[in-house]
Computed example of a mutant assay.
Amino acid sequence: MIHCEGLVKIYKAADLEVFALQGLDLRVETGEMMAIIGNSGSGKSTLLNMLGGLDRPSAGSLAVDGKDMLKMSEPDLVRYKRESVGFVWQNNARNLIPYLTALENVELPILLRGRRKRMRALELLEAVGLTHRKNNKLHQLSGGEQQRVAIAIALANQPKLLLADEPTGSVDSRMADQILDLFREMNRTYGITIVIVTHDPHLAKKVDRVVAIRDGKISSEMLRKRSYAEELAELERGAAPADPGEDSHVEYAVLDKAGRLQVPAGYLEAIGVKDKNKVKLEVVDGKIVLTPPEEAS
């Protein structure tokens, strides 16, 4: 579904150039549900904007659903945003129109494409568990209910890709669990590819793959030891739940095409390589070993 290679994004402000992405490589399979995490300023929201056609890369290649995002004309880009991708934002003001009811909010994007709106909108509200709130306006809905309406809106035009930017950032942990479970259900039911951008490590318990961005590049990937679906199936068979203290994922450093990787600062500090730009690299018993540089005598 998504293929990024050597993706670069440069923002210019006055005489300054800011590199938001610095040669990022990423593949996301069709039907996958995955998360992208990273600190503020790491480039994760910039990547999401480019996947959604809201911004264009400065260099590199980016293809979504077989479409070359760098070569798209403006009319093609508008069509892509209307037909191929759905958005869920943390800020509900970007998702919902306050003077419309929940049903009318979901009907609007369907109406813009000339489809039969009422039946489709009701089906989507039922899918997110809000049929009983269909006639309520924004101020009459809780934060979690508003976010569920936003998910219904994002699915209104049957997109192949759903992008969610901090979708659980404005709700409590219980509602966050419900929203993430809803994403999982939408993923299973509709086969839609879902990419969630977040800084919340709690998401790792709900998705099978988590990609970490640091300094505009993919630094590591975390893969589940057992898929989330397998764990749910075991619980349904009566198996004991996993120990909450046990790591559910295995983290792998990501090599770029030149064989480079980003070593987390904590690892370097642990071996005494703080405020240095060199390490000694050796192969010992079939393992690559990093050690601090030898001090000059």
Rank of each mutant, 00 (worst) to 15 (best):
I196K: 07
D25M: 11
R94G: 01
S227L: 12
E295K: 11
V64E: 01
N91L: 06
G216E: 04
E221R: 14
E185K: 14
L290V: 13
K81F: 06
I153H: 00
L268N: 09
R79P: 05
S42K: 04
A204D: 03
L163P: 02
D256A: 05
G43S: 08
L281N: 07
G216K: 00
D275G: 05
L103W: 03
K274M: 14
S40P: 04
G31T: 12
Q147K: 10
G52A: 09
L203K: 08
K217Q: 15
V284G: 02
E123R: 12
E295P: 03
I2E: 07
A59Q: 06
Y11L: 12
A156I: 04
D25C: 01
W89L: 05
M34P: 05
E104F: 02
L125V: 07
M34H: 04
R174F: 07
Y80K: 04
S219L: 02
D200C: 00
V28T: 05
G129D: 08
N49D: 08
P57Q: 08
A14M: 10
M50T: 06
K71Y: 02
R184H: 00
A265G: 12
A152V: 08
L155H: 04
L70W: 01
A14I: 12
V289F: 10
V28E: 01
A13C: 11
E282Q: 15
K160A: 13
A258V: 04
G216A: 01
A14N: 09
E104Q: 15
K206Y: 14
G38T: 01
A93R: 10
D177M: 13
K67Q: 14
E294A: 15
T101H: 01
S58H: 11
I196F: 05
S220E: 14
A14R: 07
Y80I: 00
A253F: 15
G259S: 11
V254G: 03
G216M: 00
L122C: 11
I192Q: 06
L48Q: 01
D25S: 12
P98R: 10
T291G: 14
V171R: 07
V283M: 13
H249L: 13
I196M: 02
